[in-house]
Simulated scan of single mutants.
Amino acid sequence: MRRRLAPVATAVMVLSSICVTPALAAAVSAQDTMFVKAAHQGNLAEIAAGEDAQEHATTECVEKVGAVLVRDHTKLDADVKLLAGKLNVTLPGSPTAEQEKELAAVQAKAGTPAYDAAWLKSQEAAHTATLALIDQELSAGENSEVKAAARSARPVVAMHLDMVRGGECHAGKDAGKVRAGHSGQLAADDSSLALAGVASLAGGGLLATCGALWFLHNRRRSAERR
Rank of each mutant, 00 (worst) to 15 (best):
A6Q: 12
M13L: 15
V14T: 13
S17T: 09
I18N: 02
V20L: 12
P22L: 13
P22M: 08
A23C: 05
L24E: 01
A26I: 05
A27E: 06
D32Y: 06
D32A: 14
T33L: 14
M34A: 15
F35V: 12
V36W: 02
K37W: 00
H40G: 02
N43F: 03
N43G: 15
A45T: 12
A48H: 00
A49M: 08
G50W: 00
E51R: 15
T59E: 01
V68L: 02
H73N: 09
T74C: 02
K75Q: 13
A78Y: 08
V80Q: 07
G85V: 02
L87D: 09
T90F: 00
L91S: 07
G93P: 00
P95A: 12
A97Y: 01
K101D: 09
A105M: 11
V106L: 10
V106C: 05
V106P: 00
Q107L: 13
A108G: 03
K109Y: 00
T112K: 11
Y115R: 12
L120P: 00
K121D: 07
K121R: 14
S122E: 11
E124D: 12
A126Y: 02
L131S: 04
L133T: 05
L133N: 08
S139C: 01
G141N: 05
G141Q: 06
E142M: 09
K147I: 04
R151Q: 11
R151I: 01
A158S: 10
E168G: 03
A171I: 07
G172E: 14
A175F: 02
G176P: 04
K177A: 14
G181D: 02
A188K: 10
S192V: 14
L193G: 09
L201R: 13
G205Y: 05
L207S: 12
A212S: 14
W214Y: 10
L216T: 04
R221N: 11
A223H: 10
R225C: 06
R226G: 13
